[in-house]
Structure formats: structure tokens, C-alpha cells
């Protein structure tokens, strides 16, 4: 299992694009929105939590279609399925590797982009906390979408269509935490719900993903 994590991390680093693309996309969103909305800092401060969460979500989505597709194309998915590690575990590990190379860097870079969007001072802490708690769910849910579409032609577009509705609860609670934090309100409830979603999907969804991969390899 550790070996799989190490391998996936190593692959992401060597391919180069792994880190960079998602982050660059996130940065572009944070730059383009003010250009489109206008430089009114009060308005930007108000929409910053939502923009940052939507940006992080789309940046996560960007690299999902390669999560299993590369392993499918070069045959290693077949070999992983026949290997002595449970496929459910392999799926969870691959989602973790995806989070480490996309979700985690996005979480760390988000405060910088918060500055660009005039996020109120009280919001920064909650931005980082909510992304740290919420982005793992994005990777796990995304892995489910990737498992459903592995081996399909034009799977990428379908993947977005399948995964985005599943992202709704995470997005709502995540952005709500930042919004409330920035307004100086209590954040405990949405934060607890966000953590509950992440814990729930991390525990259960790998089983559905593994089932989908087995169906697709048949």
C-alpha cells in the first residue's frame, strides 16, 4: 500500500504537470474573477469564499480523469487488480495520492489567493481549515467518478458531469465555513458537517469505486 502511494507520488512529481497545472488553474480563477467582476473590494471580499472554493473544486477536477486512466492504458490496473492488495485499499491510496498532489497544495496556496480577492482577515484561518478538511472528500468522490469512467472514450467530460453534482454538499458546507468565519460568526456546525462528509466518503466510497473498476475491467 505504501509502495503504491510512493509510486503515485513519484509519478506525479516526475510528470511535472501534476502539481503545476492545478495550482496554475486555481491562480487563474483568482485573477480572472476580479477582472470579470470589477475591482470593487467590498464586493470581492463578499464573494471571495465562494470563488476560492469553486476554484479549488475545479482545479481538483482537472487532473481526475488521469487517476485511473493512465494505469488502465498501460495495463497496470489489470495487474493491480490481480495483486495481493485489496482494490478498495488501492483506490483509497490513489485518492490520497491525488489529494497530496492537488488538494494539499491548493490548501496551502489558498491564503495567497485570498489576498488577491480581499478576503477579510478573519477568514484566512477558516479558509485553510475548511479546504484541509474538505478537499480530501473532493479527491475521494472524484476517484469514484474516475472509476466509473475508466476505459471510456471521452471519459473526461462525462467525469465532470458525474462528479460535479456529487460535489454539491462539500462545496456548500466548505464555502459556508469560510463565509461565516469571515463574518466572525460561529463555524462549528458547517465545519462538523464538512468533516462528517469527508470521513463518510473516505470510509464508504472506495468500496463503490472498487466495484466500478472491477465492472469496467471485465
Amino acid at each position: 500500500m505504501i509502495a503504491l502511494l510512493v509510486r503515485d507520488m513519484r509519478l506525479a512529481m516526475r510528470a511535472g504537470g501534476g502539481f503545476g497545472l492545478g495550482l496554475a488553474f486555481f491562480l487563474l480563477v483568482a485573477v480572472l474573477v476580479p477582472l470579470g467582476v470589477g475591482p470593487n473590494s467590498a464586493l470581492l471580499a463578499k464573494i471571495a469564499p465562494g470563488i476560492l472554493w469553486v476554484g479549488a473544486l475545479l482545479a481538483c477536477l482537472l487532473s481526475l480523469d488521469r487517476l485511473f486512466a493512465l494505469d488502465f492504458e498501460d495495463g497496470s490496473l489489470d495487474l493491480l487488480v490481480t495483486a495481493p492488495i485489496p482494490l478498495e485499499g488501492a483506490v483509497a491510496i490513489k485518492a490520497l495520492a491525488h489529494w497530496l498532489v492537488t488538494g494539499l497544495p491548493l490548501t496551502l496556496i489558498a491564503p495567497v489567493l485570498g489576498v488577491l480577492l480581499n478576503l477579510p482577515e478573519a477568514g484566512y484561518f477558516w479558509l485553510v481549515v475548511s479546504l484541509a478538511l474538505g478537499t480530501p472528500a473532493l479527491s475521494v468522490i472524484g476517484a469514484f467518478g474516475a472509476a466509473l469512467t475508466v476505459g471510456l472514450k471521452r471519459g473526461g467530460l462525462l467525469l465532470s458531469l458525474l462528479v460535479l453534482p456529487l460535489y454539491v454538499p462539500t462545496l456548500i458546507f466548505g464555502a459556508e465555513v469560510v463565509k461565516r468565519g469571515a463574518d466572525g460568526m460561529a463555524t462549528a456546525t458547517p465545519l462538523a458537517l464538512l468533516a462528517a462528509i469527508t470521513a463518510g466518503v473516505a470510509a464508504l466510497l472506495p468500496f463503490a469505486s472498487a466495484a466500478a473498476i472491477r465492472i469496467n475491467l471485465r
Binding site: R7, D78, T82
Partner: peptide
């Protein structure tokens, strides 16, 4: 069983 097919499952960057 150890299975080997047409595709080698190699990672080009490793």
C-alpha cells in the same frame, strides 16, 4: 496466479 498480458504496466518515468 501471476498474470502478464500484452500491456506491461510499466511507468515510463520510473
Amino acid at each position: 496466479i501471476a498474470y502478464a498480458a500484452h500491456a506491461d504496466g510499466l511507468k515510463a518515468t520510473l
